[in-house]
C-alpha cells in the first residue's frame, strides 16, 4: 500500500479507437485466468476446506474457547491501535500539509519507514528494546510489567506496522484541499479548535475513515511482527492469524481454515467498504479548475 490509492479510471471516457475485439478478448481472458488462479481459487479453497467436514466442525472450530480468546485479543489490539494511529495520522497530516518547513520531504519519507521494514524485523526491534534480556526490559520486569511475550508487545508491534496508514491517506487529500478554507475561517474569527472541528475534520472525514479501514484490516491480519513478540502462549497471546498458524502446523487443517474464514470474511468486508469509500473520497479532493 505504498502508493497512494488513486482510484479507478473514469468509466465515461472511452479510448480513441478501441483495440480489435479479438485482442480485447484475449487480454480479458488472460486477466480472468490470472484472477482465477491467484485471487479466486485461494478464496474458494478457504471455504471448501473449512466446510470439508461439515458445518458442525466448522462452528465448533470457531466456538472453541481458544479461538474466541484469539478473536478477543485481536479486537482488543485493533481497538487500541486504530484510534492511536488515527490521532497521530491527523496530527502529522495537519503539520505536513498546512505548513511549510525545512525537512518536510525527509519527515514524509520517515513516516513510510514501517512499510519498508520486514514484519519480522518489526517484531525483532521490540524484542531488542523491551525484551526481558535488555536493561530496559528487565527494569520493567522488576516492576512487574511484562511487554514482550504479552499483550502490550502485540499492541506496540501492531502500532509500528500500521503506523503510516492514516497519515498517508490524509496528507495528499489535505494537500489537494489547500489551506484557503482554514484561512477563510480565521479571517472570520475562528480559533484553532473550532476551525479544526467545524472545517477541517468534516472535509477529511472520508479520507480519515478510509485510512482507518486500512489500518484496522492490517492490525487484524498482521502476522510476522506479532508472531515474533507474542511468544505463542496459547489462549493468552494468540491473535487470530497466530491461531490459524498453530492449528495449521498441528495438521488440524479444517479448524485452521475455519478460523481463517473469519479473516477472509473481514477481508471481503474491508474490500467492500474500501470500494464504497473510494467513490466518496473522489469528491473530497479539490476539483476546482
Amino acid at each position: 500500500m505504498q502508493q497512494r490509492q488513486n482510484h479507478t479510471a473514469s468509466p465515461s471516457r472511452t479510448p480513441a479507437k478501441n483495440d480489435p475485439l479479438a485482442v480485447q478478448a484475449v487480454l480479458i481472458g488472460l486477466t480472468l485466468l490470472f484472477f482465477a488462479g491467484f485471487i479466486f481459487m485461494p478464496l474458494a479453497l478457504v471455504f471448501s476446506q473449512a466446510l470439508s467436514k461439515g458445518w458442525q466442525l466448522y462452528i465448533d472450530a470457531i466456538r472453541e474457547p481458544v479461538a474466541l480468546e484469539a478473536v478477543k485479543l485481536t479486537l482488543l489490539t485493533a481497538s487500541i491501535v486504530v484510534p492511536i494511529n488515527a490521532v497521530f495520522g491527523v496530527t502529522a497530516a495537519w503539520a505536513i500539509s498546512k505548513f511549510s518547513f525545512k525537512g518536510k520531504t525527509l519527515l514524509v519519507s520517515l513516516l513510510d519507514l514501517p512499510f519498508a521494514v520486514s514484519p519480522v524485523i518489526a517484531g525483532l526491534i521490540f524484542v531488542l528494546l523491551l525484551g526481558s534480556r535488555t536493561p530496559f526490559g528487565s527494569w520493567l520486569g522488576d516492576h512487574g510489567i511484562k511487554i514482550i511475550f504479552a499483550t502490550p508487545g502485540i499492541v506496540i508491534a501492531t502500532l509500528f506496522i500500521t503506523f503510516p496508514f492514516v497519515a498517508r491517506e490524509l496528507i495528499p487529500l489535505m494537500e489537494s484541499q489547500g489551506r484557503e478554507e482554514e484561512e477563510a475561517a480565521i479571517t472570520l474569527g475562528a480559533g484553532g479548535w473550532r476551525l479544526f472541528r467545524m472545517i477541517t475534520l468534516p472535509n477529511i472525514g472520508w479520507g480519515l475513515m478510509y485510512g482507518m479501514v486500512l489500518c484496522t484490516a492490517r492490525s487484524i491480519g498482521e502476522f510476522g511482527a506479532v508472531s515474533v513478540v507474542s511468544g505463542h502462549i496459547r489462549g493468552m497471546t494468540n491473535t487470530i492469524p497466530l491461531h490459524v498458524e498453530i492449528l495449521y502446523s498441528e495438521y488440524n487443517y479444517t479448524a485452521s481454515f475455519a478460523v481463517a474464514s473469519i479473516l477472509v470474511f473481514l477481508a471481503l468486508v474491508t474490500i467492500g467498504v474500501k470500494t464504497a469509500l473510494e467513490q466518496r473520497l473522489e469528491g473530497s479532493h479539490n476539483t476546482r479548475h
Binding site: M1, F223, G224, P241, V244, V264, A267
Partner: peptide, 13 residues
C-alpha cells in the same frame, strides 16, 4: 485482496 487478506491466510491457502 492481497492488501486486505492477512498474509498467514494467503500462506496456508
Amino acid at each position: 485482496l492481497p492488501f486486505a487478506l492477512p498474509t498467514a491466510v494467503a500462506g496456508i491457502c
